[in-house]
Amino acid sequence: MADQYNLGALPKRITGGCLCGKIRYEGHFPDNHDFKQNSGTCQCTQCRRSTSHLFFMWHKVPYSLFKWTASTDTLKNYYCSKGNARGFCGNCGTFLYWRRESGPNINIAIGTIDPLYLFGEGWEDSGGEVPKGGFGRALANSCGGHEWVRNEIPGVTDELELVGAGPRGRGERVEAD
């Protein structure tokens, strides 16, 4: 990859949750975690509608290293396709993840990662765990691929540098979980 995709410091873990704070999570990364390959976007109609955005930006966390750290009483799953869960908070509506239930990963919605890890808010109090500026480049570099770009919006999402960073799938998955 080009120098512009130098990811800088890499996190060992992240935390995050929904807007109302009812749902909280923590994800850990193995030492060999490939931050480029595990970051991407999707422009399918389902992702657009569930996120209310032009594309869904995600980072894959191994499900075996992911845990809920607060009650999941308000956690709901919506299945637009068999075996594929879209998780959201039933209280505030925050879209949290997409997960193929038979796969080894959970695709965390980048916007749900805590500000400390995403852009470094409060880094001074992190005891050196988080650098100034956070880990946003490592978590949201989108070098891992872009799914369903056949749904890209001409003149808008097809010209975004971020969406051009990794391989582009035209109607099928770029890579298998």
Results as ranks from 00 to 15, higher is better:
3 D>R: 04
4 Q>C: 02
4 Q>M: 03
6 N>D: 13
6 N>C: 08
8 G>K: 02
11 P>Y: 09
11 P>G: 06
11 P>W: 15
11 P>A: 03
24 R>K: 04
25 Y>Q: 04
27 G>N: 04
29 F>T: 03
30 P>C: 11
31 D>I: 15
32 N>L: 03
33 H>M: 10
35 F>V: 11
36 K>I: 07
40 G>S: 12
40 G>L: 12
42 C>E: 15
42 C>Y: 15
48 R>Q: 14
50 S>A: 11
51 T>P: 07
52 S>T: 10
54 L>V: 15
55 F>G: 10
56 F>G: 00
57 M>L: 09
58 W>H: 13
59 H>P: 06
66 F>Y: 08
67 K>S: 14
67 K>N: 14
67 K>T: 12
67 K>H: 13
67 K>A: 14
68 W>G: 05
69 T>F: 14
74 T>D: 02
74 T>C: 08
77 N>W: 01
80 C>A: 14
80 C>I: 05
82 K>L: 01
83 G>Q: 00
84 N>L: 05
87 G>A: 13
88 F>Y: 06
88 F>W: 05
88 F>K: 00
93 G>A: 02
99 R>V: 13
101 E>Y: 00
101 E>S: 00
103 G>Q: 00
106 I>R: 01
108 I>D: 01
110 I>T: 10
112 T>Y: 08
112 T>S: 10
113 I>E: 09
114 D>M: 02
115 P>D: 09
115 P>W: 06
116 L>N: 10
118 L>N: 11
119 F>I: 02
121 E>T: 14
121 E>W: 14
123 W>F: 06
125 D>H: 05
126 S>R: 00
126 S>F: 05
135 F>D: 00
136 G>K: 08
137 R>D: 02
139 L>M: 06
142 S>W: 11
143 C>F: 12
144 G>M: 14
145 G>V: 11
146 H>F: 06
148 W>S: 01
150 R>L: 13
152 E>C: 04
158 D>E: 11
158 D>C: 05
170 R>D: 13
170 R>K: 10
171 G>I: 08
172 E>M: 02
176 A>Y: 08
